[in-house]
Amino acid sequence: MNRRDFMRNVLRGASLIGLGGVLAGVIRKANASNTVWQIDPWKCTQCGRCATECVLELSAVKCVHSFDMCGYCQLCTGYFEPQPNKLNTAAENQLCPTGAIKRQFVEDPYYEYSIDEPLCIGCSKCVKGCTMFGNGSLHLQIRHDRCVNCNECSIARACPADAIHRVPAAQPYHFKSREGHGG
């Protein structure tokens, strides 16, 4: 073995020890399960950046509806424009820019509102209306059939409320519920 090979062996051994050190430094708190991005709906301020900051053409953030919190109001402030002409499903009365909320009569005087997810762009206009004047049952969530799980979420980077964090992949949602701040 010549001098050069010997030096290489020594340095390679040192590098392996170094990498082992890094491994030891991170492995203690390593997470066997993966994590995914999710919005804390209680922190969300409905700024509208979710619709524009996602790396996907159509954001991975969608509005979801916690039906058990909903008042089933006839005049839904998440569904209707602030001063609607009539309380019907005509486009000019709707707050949603893409008409992604479906309004369905249940029984007098209750209406059920559900999200047509492919149409939703995650703009949070309905969420704002519902949270300000209603029960706050409409809220935003990152949909994991769409999210590509970027190493650093570009919406999280832009979020003024610091509402987006990584959560365990086994519990990938943070839905609102009637029990309040559910964890």
Binding site: V36, D68, E107, G134, N149, F175, K176, G180
Partner: peptide
Amino acid sequence: IFLAAAKFPPPEFSETGHQIPGFVAPAAR
């Protein structure tokens, strides 16, 4: 327990017995 103050109480649906839908949640990878 009602921790979040609901401005509009959720209805009972005594007439139709309408079932309140749950969440649709596509799983993570």
